[in-house]
């Protein structure tokens, strides 16, 4: 474990907590894409298949349970909670996320480190996570006004993967044979997808104006 990865995990945890806080306290999911939340639940479900078979550390197991539990409960809240679901904007959240799942699955079957079920599922979760934010970014473009919590949520979600890139660089230089091209490239693509959001997020923060994404 290194400081970059720990900071990345804490940032990722913070993003999930910000979202749960928003949904649980103000009972609203305005501006939140259910599609992205469903994709993230699928990412964790396919990535943590080793939850009960490989014990790495208490930290690792605990964080996996938190990410699994929070992502599925967020999907539940937006889909079934009688108050929260009313604020879900299904007419705007129209990204066809199945068009993301299938290509990622095919790509995972073609490009992976080892053609085993677990490894293909794990690779699929990496490719899917890289694009899972797209429905959310599209929704932000449409719903002009982005409230603070939603903006912070997306920012933290992007920042965690950027910190992971620093972690990979650190591990590459400190651990012999630590080479994982698939992880690195999908992590880089994921972070780049946030690039324009980061730009507008910092602009709004610097000029102290409301966050607005260009149409």
């Amino acid at each position: 474990m290194n400081i970059f990865r720990f900071a990345g995990d804490m940032t990722h945890l913070a993003s999930v907590l910000v979202l749960l806080l928003k949904i649980h306290t103000i009972k609203s999911c305005a501006g939140i894409s259910l599609k992205t939340q469903e994709l993230y639940a699928l990412v964790f479900a396919t990535r943590y298949l080793d939850l009960f078979t490989d014990y790495i550390s208490l930290y690792n197991t605990l964080m996996k349970l938190i990410f699994l539990g929070s992502s599925f409960s967020i999907v539940w809240y937006i889909r079934y909670h009688k108050i929260v679901r009313r604020s879900y904007d299904k007419d705007q959240d129209t990204f066809r996320h199945y068009f993301l799942v299938l290509p990622c699955l095919l790509l995972a079957l073609l490009i992976n480190e080892k053609f085993t079920f677990r490894e293909v599922m794990w690779t699929f979760s990496l490719y899917l996570e890289a694009v899972a934010i797209l429905p959310q970014l599209v929704l932000l473009q449409r719903t002009r006004n982005i409230d603070n919590l939603t903006g912070q949520y997306v920012f933290l979600l992007g920042a965690y993967r950027a910190l992971y890139i620093l972690n990979w660089i650190y591990r590459y230089f400190t651990e012999p044979h630590y080479v994982h091209w698939i992880t690195w490239i999908s992590g880089l693509v994921q972070t780049l997808l946030y690039a324009d959001f980061f730009y507008y997020y910092f602009q709004s923060w610097k000029n102290n104006v409301k966050l607005e994404l260009p149409a």
């Binding site: 990722h12 790495i56 690792n60 996996k64 972690n167």
Partner: peptide
Amino acid sequence: SEEEDVKDEL
């Protein structure tokens, strides 16, 4: 055989 590279990252 190569040591099973355990996925230690989240």
